[in-house]
Structures are given as structure tokens and as C-alpha cells.
Design a protein around this nucleic acid. Structure first.
Length: 653
RNA sequence: GCCACCGUAGCUCAGUGGUAGAGCACACCCUUGGUAAGGGUGAGGUCAUGGGUUCAAGUCCCAUCGGUGGCUCCA
């Protein structure tokens, strides 16, 4: 991509006009696209911080036991920014946010006491006896597991004051080492025992904890600050999307500004895919059920699909109560792959056609559970940057690598740095593997080797997850964290050695034999919904010009120059630049403020001087200097900036 | 789906049982202004929805719907 031609970024240029800007205090700060405050992801178990958090978790349990006799304990580990503890409260006791204050107070009291942490190891039988006597059924269960499955002969316990917990440690020496002002209980949540929703739901209390009061305060502030970049806040403020009860949860409405971003992403994808030899296709959003038996979505994926639309002899809606047998069932598509396979099948293919790459920004609908929905990151209706690539075994690795390269091109363009790759493989030792994976150990061995080699040949680092594969093959996911700290798979590259066979897809090889192709499922721009959520947060709502919903805002100094401003607007719009003219009856300062708070990348000031000299004064978002540019220079350089998708503020993010 | 909390104007929020409020945004008028909020006037709400308690409910209770934070699940 050419980056040599670009509009001046205004930095280092001397041209300034007018007064100095007013004091910064009156301004909306130009936010950086920061993610969550930096958090230690893996705290060393012997570090002071780990001991502190671990010990405070015990103090929390101790305080809760004192205040709510009869409470049962679950797990209480240190986490990234503090710790939590899970409790099962006696029947009828419901904890609310208000109660946290009282618990925190009791904890602080314990911290002021002189209670040494004393460690002891008990033989397994004695440990069970003690936990049983303590009335801790969950601890007993876990203790047995440590013994039976992990071979522990002795079990560790820690005692401080009146409180005893089964625990491997380590801890601080004494509760008085725990500062009462460096932790804060901040939220309550339901959590299933051992993370299994078939188990009882316990009450989890979360806390922040740091080594000093200042760090705690800084963390709480950073969390507040990060929330301002939340795509749900900015999406509302910048008019990107809206979710209306009347339409349905998880079904976003894209406002004009959001639709403009979608348009740019689709244009980007089209250009990249066209150049890489993809063929664009289009498929319907509803489909007869039979296709999903072929694909295996029914019944395997049924829980994530909207229930079917049923047709009866007498027409849609049916012939009434007695008419129980629909003649046809249609489903909203949850994925595009079955349709793309049908497109492959619609024509006869030779090995000469391969790799055959078919792509579509396809709309899919999934019945996500209500509690899982979240802004744009988790929705029920989505539009996916999908493509399926059919290849011979020989082509598989290179094509998989080409998709990884495409990812890299996109990620470099956006300047993404804060993400990681996750390689998901099957789990041959999973007792339920028959339900989760295609039963073809050789296929798994081959494709996993291909994927791993591809990653290594490209020199990419990744984490490996056993048991996280798709049912048809291994995959590489690109994982992101939102400003609120949630992790999401943004984009994906998957290998499929099973489904083409189910569909009976074949190509004629050079030897005249019909063979089944491998398939790569890929979505390097993910779905519009999740990807735009990431972009909003990444750019803190201040998009580079090519992606910005409104690219140029024209601010006439007075009505005297309205004709010049209108001419300018018409000229830019003719060039397909998303331009607005602020001809409202407001002062110039007000218009600048408004253009800036809307994070429009370029505000143009035009007054009598500009009109006379055929120039514009360019005010870029987040950049102080304001050059005066000849009109044709501005237009041609803007055109280049947009065409080359240059992000002039890249180094400032 | 489960646990906790929340739902008042387009947005952000105040209003703890007795005549629905503010700021921003919006409309109109004055102002024609050279770099982050000029002034005035006005419109806008069955207080999410439906029941209940009460002489009286935005306020108390119940249910439903929606949102937030988690758990589970996932692009």
C-alpha cells in the first residue's frame, strides 16, 4: 500500500492563524484508543501480589462466614485485578450490592487483627474428615478429586484466627500484613459450581486488590476511563447503531454513520478478495431444513438456531389447530457454509478450478441465549465476512497461509497490536469426542499438522487449545479484548476435512478420478457487528478518514461565504467524499466544538479569506496545527489519503 | 437460560407516597461571528408494560419486557 502521498498531518508546520485555542479544561479530551488498563495476566504464584490477593480471598470467606453463619464455600482464587470467592448461602439468604459494604468492613477489621496464617498438611483421610466436620461439601468433592485424579496423598490447609480453608497457598504471614485500604469489593455475580450449569449456582463476590491504595485507586479510575471508549457508549454518541426493543434484542439497527463504516469494510474486502482471486456470491437467508441435516447443523447446532418457520398445505401460518404436520420447514441460516457448498455443487469442477474461492458478506441469524447478548459484540443477527476456499490436499497449506497473510494485511492496515492467535485442536481423549468431532483420527492428524506448520512457517506465535476445534477441523482464531475486559474471537481461519464429503462435493483430478476437496472457512474481518465494535474501541471513535462516517465537515465563518462552502461541499461529494456542511445558525466556535466532539477527521474552516484565495483551512481531529491549503491540492491529496487508506494519526494512537 | 442490579424527554441524569424536573440535543427568533459551548423563546414524558396495595403510586408489592455486571455458551 502506498503511503508516500498523503495530506500534511499538520505536525511541524508553521502556519497558524487566529487565536490560541481556549483552555484545555473546557474541551472534550482527545481519547486514546486504549484497551483495558494493563493488567498482569499471569501473576507469579510466589509474588507478594499473588499472596496478598490469595490471603484476602481467605479473609473475605472468613468475613462472610462470620456474618452469614451456615454459608458453604466454593473456590476463591486470585485473578487479574484482584480476587473472588464463591459462596453458597443458606436457603433464603440473598446477597445484594448493599451487603458488600458490610462485608468489606468486617474484612478490614480482620486485617487489623493479628492473625498469623499457619500451614499444615493432612493425610487424605484426615483431610476428608476435617472438611466433612467443617460442613463443606464442595471442598470435600474437590479434595476427593485431588486425591483420586491427581494423586495427592496429603492436602494442604491454612488457618488464620478462627478460619480454616483447604488451600495450597502461599499466603502472607499475618492478616496484619494486609492493608485494609488496598482492596475493594466491587460486584456480585452468579457462578455455577465448577463452571457447570448443571451444578448449583453459587454467589461470587469480586474484589479489586493491589499492593497500595494508590494502585487500587488508579485501577478503579482506569476502569472508569476505559468505559468511555466502550463501543456501546460511543456507538450511541456517534450515531453508529441502535437496538430497539420493538425490533428485538441482539438485532442492531445500523444508523447512517454505522452503515457508512459497513460500506467501507465491504469495499475493502471486495478489493482485497477480488485481487486474491475470490468470486463473490450471494445466497438467501432462509433455507429448507433438509440442507441442515446434510450439513449436520440439525440437530447438532439446533440450540443456536432460531426455531423454524413452518409451511402448511393451506399456506403460511397453517390450517389451524388440527394441522400438525407442516409440509415444509424453513430455517434462518446460522452460517453460510452450506450455501457455499451448494454453490460449489451447482457446477462441475476440475482440479484446474482449484483453489476455488467463493466469498460473501452473508447475513446469519443465531439464537444466542439472552444473557449472552452484549452490544455489538454478541448479537443474534450478524453479517459475516465469509468465504470458503476449496482446495486439493497439496494446495491446503499454501492457501491456509495466504489467508493468514490476508489477516496480516488487514491487521496492519488497522494497526491492531493487542490480540493473540489461538490454535484450536480436537481432543482425542475427550470421552464425548464422538458428539463433538468428526471421527477421523487421520484427518485430524493431517490437518492439525498443516495448520501448525503454516503458523510456524509464517513465524507466528500462538496459544494452543486442546478440545476447542470446530467439529469439522482445526482452526486459528484471533482473540481480542474489549475495553471492558471481555475476550472475543474477532476473526477466524478454519480448516475443514469433513463437511465437503457430507455434501458429496467432488472435483475431477488430473487422473480423471473424482476427489473430495478440503475446505477453508475464513472470516478475516469477522462479522460487521463484532468487528466494528472492535474498531470503535480501537480508534476510540476517531476513525481514520477512509473509514469515518463523516469524512469532512465544512464550517463557514459566516453566511457571506455560504456559496463557496456549498461549492466545496458539492465538489467533495462528487468525489464520493462523505461531506457535511454545517450551515446551522451557530457560532463558529460552537460548530468547531460540534465537529470535534463528533470526531470528524477533517473540519474545514472557510471564511472570506479562503473564498477569495480559493483555499481551505484544515483542522484535523487531534492535531493542533491548521494549514491553509489550495483547494485543488487539498482535494487531490484527500483523494489519495482515502484511496490509500492512510491513518495520519496512527503514531498517536 | 441462571444470579444480582437497573429502567423517568432523542441522550445524560435529579425527583422516597400528595400538580413530572434540569443540562445537552431539537425547532423558531435575535445575533453574521476567524478557531472547543453567544442570547432568547418553545416543543418534547400514559415515569418500560400489565396487574395489585393505598384516599392518593414515577415512588411500595408482583409479573412480563428490556438493559448492565457475572456464570454458561460463542463470530
Amino acid at each position: 500500500m502506498c503511503r508516500c502521498t498523503r495530506l500534511p498531518t499538520n505536525r511541524g508546520r508553521g502556519q497558524k492563524r487566529g487565536r490560541r485555542p481556549s483552555p484545555a479544561a473546557s474541551r472534550e479530551p482527545v481519547r486514546k484508543g486504549t484497551a483495558m488498563p494493563v493488567i498482569e495476566r499471569t501473576v507469579d504464584k510466589n509474588s507478594d501480589l499473588y499472596k496478598l490477593r490469595h490471603s484476602l480471598a481467605h479473609v473475605l470467606a472468613q468475613a462472610v462466614q462470620e456474618l452469614y453463619p451456615g454459608v458453604k464455600l466454593g473456590f476463591g482464587p486470585p485473578i487479574d485485578d484482584g480476587f473472588y470467592y464463591d459462596f453458597l448461602f443458606p436457603e433464603g439468604v440473598v446477597l445484594t450490592d448493599e451487603d458488600l459494604k458490610g462485608i468489606q468492613k468486617r474484612m478490614q477489621k480482620i486485617c487489623r487483627e493479628d492473625q498469623p496464617f499457619v500451614q499444615e498438611d493432612l493425610p487424605f483421610e484426615q483431610a476428608i474428615a476435617r472438611l466433612t466436620e467443617m460442613g463443606e461439601p464442595h471442598k470435600v468433592e474437590y479434595c476427593k478429586e485431588l486425591h483420586d485424579k491427581k494423586g495427592f496423598d496429603t492436602i494442604g490447609f491454612y488457618t488464620n484466627g478462627p478460619f480454616v480453608d483447604m488451600c495450597e497457598g502461599p499466603h502472607v504471614e499475618n492478616t496484619k500484613n494486609l492493608r485494609p485500604d488496598c482492596f475493594k469489593l466491587h460486584s456480585l455475580a452468579g457462578a455455577y459450581w465448577r463452571g457447570d450449569e448443571k451444578n448449583v449456582q453459587m454467589t461470587r463476590i469480586y474484589a479489586y486488590a493491589f499492593e497500595s491504595k494508590d494502585e487500587l485507586k488508579a485501577h478503579a479510575q482506569a476502569v472508569e476511563e476505559a468505559k468511555k471508549n466502550d463501543h456501546r457508549i460511543l456507538g450511541q454518541k456517534l450515531g453508529i447503531y441502535s437496538i430497539a426493543d420493538e425490533v428485538g434484542k441482539g438485532l442492531p439497527l445500523w444508523l447512517p454513520n454505522g452503515a457508512a463504516i459497513r460500506h467501507e469494510l465491504e469495499k475493502l474486502a471486495y478489493e482485497m478478495e477480488f485481487a486474491a482471486g475470490y468470486h463473490k456470491v450471494s445466497t438467501p437467508e432462509i433455507t429448507r431444513e433438509g440442507l441442515y441435516y446434510t450439513s449436520g447443523h440439525l440437530p447438532l447446532y439446533k440450540h443456536s438456531m432460531f426455531p423454524p418457520m413452518e409451511l402448511y398445505e393451506e399456506g403460511p401460518g397453517g390450517g389451524g389447530e388440527g394441522d400438525e404436520n407442516p409440509t415444509e420447514r424453513y430455517y434462518l441460516k446460522p452460517m453460510n457454509c452450506p450455501h457455499h457448498h451448494m454453490i460449489f455443487k451447482a457446477q462441475k469442477h476440475s482440479y484446474r478450478d482449484l483453489p476455488l474461492r467463493i466469498s460473501e458478506y452473508g447475513r446469519c441469524y443465531r439464537f444466542e441465549r439472552a444473557g449472552a447478548l452484549q452490544g455489538l459484540t454478541r448479537v443474534r443477527g450478524m453479517c459475516m465476512n465469509d468465504a470458503h476456499i476449496y482446495v486439493t490436499p497439496e494446495q491446503l497449506k499454501d492457501e491456509f497461509k495466504a489467508v493468514m497473510d490476508l489477516h496480516k494485511t488487514y491487521y496492519d492496515l488497522f494497526g491492531f497490536e493487542d490480540y493473540y492467535l489461538r490454535l484450536s485442536q480436537w481432543d482425542p481423549d475427550d470421552p464425548k469426542k464422538g458428539d463433538k468431532y468428526v471421527d477421523d483420527p487421520e484427518g485430524w492428524a493431517f490437518t492439525e499438522k498443516v495448520v501448525q506448520e503454516a503458523l510456524e512457517e509464517l513465524g507466528l506465535s500462538y496459544t494452543m487449545e486442546r478440545g476447542e476445534a470446530a467439529f469439522y477441523g482445526p482452526k486459528v482464531d484471533y482473540e481480542f479484548r474489549t475495553v471492558t475486559g471481555r475476550e472475543f474471537t474477532a476473526t477466524t481461519n478454519q480448516l475443514d476435512f469433513a463437511v465437503p464429503k457430507r455434501f458429496g462435493l467432488v472435483y475431477t483430478d488430473s487422473d480423471g478420478e473424482e476427489k473430495t476437496p478440503y475446505c477453508i472457512h475464513r472470516a478475516p474481518l469477522g462479522t460487521h457487528e463484532r468487528f466494528i465494535a472492535i474498531l470503535i474501541e480501537h480508534y476510540a471513535g476517531a476513525f481514520p478518514t477512509w473509514l469515518a462516517p463523516v469524512q469532512v465537515n465544512i464550517i463557514p465563518v459566516s453566511e457571506k461565504v455560504i456559496d463557496y462552502a456549498k461549492k466545496l461541499e458539492a465538489m467533495l461529494r462528487k468525489d464520493l467524499v462523505r461531506t457535511e456542511l454545517d450551515d446551522s445558525n451557530a457560532t463558529m466556535g460552537k460548530k468547531i466544538r460540534s465537529g470535534t466532539t463528533r470526531k470528524i477527521p477533517i473540519n474545514l474552516i472557510v471564511g472570506e479569506q479562503e473564498a477569495e484565495q480559493n483555499t481551505v483551512t484544515m483542522r484535523r481531529y487531534g492535531i493542533e496545527d491548521q494549514p491553509v491549503l489550495a483547494l485543488d491540492t487539498f482535494v487531490s491529496e484527500l483523494r489519495d489519503e482515502i484511496r490509500d487508506r492512510v491513518d495520519v494519526r496512527r503514531d498517536m494512537r
